[in-house]
Simulated assay, not measured.
Amino acid sequence: MSVQKERVHIVYLGHSHGQDPLLTTKLHVKLLSTVFSRQEEPEDAIVYSYRHGFSGFAAMLNSTQASTLASLEGVISVFRSKLLQLHTTRSWDFMGLSLSTQQRIPLQLDYGDDIVVGIFDTGVWPEPDAVKE
């Protein structure tokens, strides 16, 4: 009998509909309990509970548990989390924009007038060195 390797999976449940965040987390644990045999396992497996804006969670699951969750009513998607390399922490340099006052030209004063700034979610990682491929 082979043991399946557990990996972080993201379980997406859709919009949270303004539900109380504490109740949302309890729902996540209850849903996760359907793929574990012991009562304490779901709480140990959950890495993060997404409960503001949308509902979902990150949990340590093997492929069978992930497939079982994906087939449940109310689960929109389940996918394995990927570790991605951050490209830059200095966006203005990455885009070739100089912020030096000595090199500033009038056109640069208009930079950003029609730009929407977003947030790059670099994800969650339970233990940086413990779960690597």
Rank of each mutant, 00 (worst) to 15 (best):
A58H: 10
D113N: 12
K132T: 05
V131F: 00
V11L: 06
F79L: 02
E41N: 09
K5Q: 15
F54S: 14
G74T: 06
E6C: 05
V8I: 06
I10Y: 00
T89A: 09
L31E: 06
K132L: 01
L13A: 08
S2P: 08
L84R: 04
T64R: 13
L109T: 06
E6D: 09
H52F: 14
D113C: 09
S55R: 13
T101W: 04
Q103C: 04
E41L: 11
Q102A: 10
P128V: 01
D129N: 03
V47N: 01
L69H: 06
I76Q: 10
L72H: 12
Y50K: 04
L61Y: 12
V117L: 09
S81P: 03
T24M: 13
H15I: 10
S81A: 05
S16R: 04
D20G: 02
F36R: 05
K26L: 08
R7E: 01
Y111F: 15
S98W: 10
L61I: 03
W125D: 00
S55K: 15
L84H: 03
S100K: 10
L99G: 15
L31S: 04
Y111P: 00
D93P: 01
V47W: 03
L109N: 10
G112V: 08
E43V: 05
E40N: 07
V8D: 00
K132H: 01
A45K: 02
F36Q: 08
D44Y: 14
I76C: 09
D114Y: 13
H28K: 06
S81Y: 02
G96V: 10
G56D: 13
Q108G: 07
L86F: 03
E127V: 01
L69P: 02
Y50Q: 04
S81Q: 02
L61F: 15
S100C: 11
Q39A: 11
I119G: 03
I115C: 08
L83M: 08
E73P: 09
F54E: 12
E41F: 14
L61V: 05
E40Q: 10
H17Y: 13
P126V: 06
Q39D: 03
K132A: 12
M95D: 04
P21L: 13
S63A: 14
V78G: 06
K82Q: 01
S63W: 07
E73H: 11
D114G: 04
D129L: 01
T122D: 04
T101K: 15
L22Q: 14
R80W: 01
L109K: 07
D93T: 05
M95P: 02
G18C: 04
S63I: 04
R80V: 01
W125Y: 07
K26P: 00
D121P: 00
S49W: 13
L69M: 06
E127L: 11
G74P: 03
L72K: 13
T89N: 15
Q103P: 02
K5H: 10
P126D: 11
I115H: 07
R104A: 04
V75Q: 07
T24D: 05
S33W: 08
K132F: 00
R80G: 01
L13D: 08
F94K: 13
T68M: 14
T88N: 07
M60T: 00
E43K: 15
S77L: 14
R38L: 12
D129V: 02
A59K: 02
R104F: 09
V117C: 11
L13T: 05
I76L: 14
S91Y: 15
E40A: 09
